[in-house]
């Protein structure tokens, strides 16, 4: 209990340091999430549009679920050695399954009659995608982005192992910062993950609500 309170003293005393590491942490996370989205979203949306690929997303997401994220990173680093690129790769690999699954589902779950009507009235495949499918997919798509972001922010702590910086630097360095520093940084990571969750959640509901004019 004592150390728990001490950690707030640590936060007050090392605010600059925490802020600095937070920025590193977020930049690293953002880069990993962005890279994962660039890979996963177009593929997932395309598979959803074609109505194919359920097997793929199911298996990919199961791999993602079956392997705890930290273990995944450990395997990665064990296999490939520690290094910034490898940590980044591990984070991206973790973010892809939820992003890909949700991108696929976001399009695949759209009422087939709606798409059939669009195609039947002579919209091109591109118009079906941009005018109909993507707007209807956005809420679920955002859920995928949100989950990917939370995964990555909580796991980016591991970057410190590879000298990647971020809040992990503090968490993994009890010698320098003491137990209160470790707990303080860990709390910050948790807070960041929660904040990202809330932020994307809010964006998602805004998008969903802005249009539809009430439930179905």
């Amino acid at each position: 209990m004592h150390t728990f309170l001490d950690c707030f003293a640590f936060m007050a005393g090392h605010f600059g340091l925490l802020l600095d590491r937070t920025i590193d942490h977020l930049l690293l996370s953002a880069a990993a999430v962005a890279l994962a989205l660039v890979l996963a979203l177009p593929l997932g949306v395309w598979l959803g549009h074609r109505g194919r690929g359920s097997f793929l997303t199911v298996s990919v997401s199961n791999i993602g679920r079956a392997l705890p994220s930290l273990a995944l990173i450990a395997i990665f680093l064990g296999l490939l050695g520690i290094g910034f690129v490898n940590v980044m790769t591990a984070l991206v690999v973790m973010a892809v399954p939820p992003a890909l699954t949700h991108a696929y589902l976001s399009v695949e779950q759209i009422d087939r009659d709606v798409v059939r009507a669009a195609r039947g009235m002579g919209l091109t495949e591109r118009q079906i995608l941009t005018r109909i499918e993507l707007p209807l997919a956005l809420p679920v798509l955002f859920t995928g982005i949100r989950i990917a972001a939370v995964y990555v922010i909580s796991s980016a702590t591991l970057a410190a192992v590879a000298g990647g910086g971020g809040l992990g630097d503090i968490i993994l360095n009890q010698v320098s910062y003491g137990l209160s520093g470790v707990i303080a940084a860990a709390l910050w990571v948790a807070a960041l993950a929660l904040a990202a969750d809330a932020l994307f959640g809010m964006l998602g509901t805004r998008i969903a609500r802005g249009r539809y004019g009430g439930g179905r």
Binding site: D111, D113, V114, A117, G120, G122, I132, Y212
Partner: peptide, 19 residues
């Protein structure tokens, strides 16, 4: 595409675009 644009198509559940 041109063919379809010259044909009206109505289905059972209307298939309106909900957004």
């Amino acid at each position: 595409i041109a063919l379809r644009r010259g044909i009206g198509y109505v289905i059972q559940q209307a298939g309106l675009f909900p957004h």
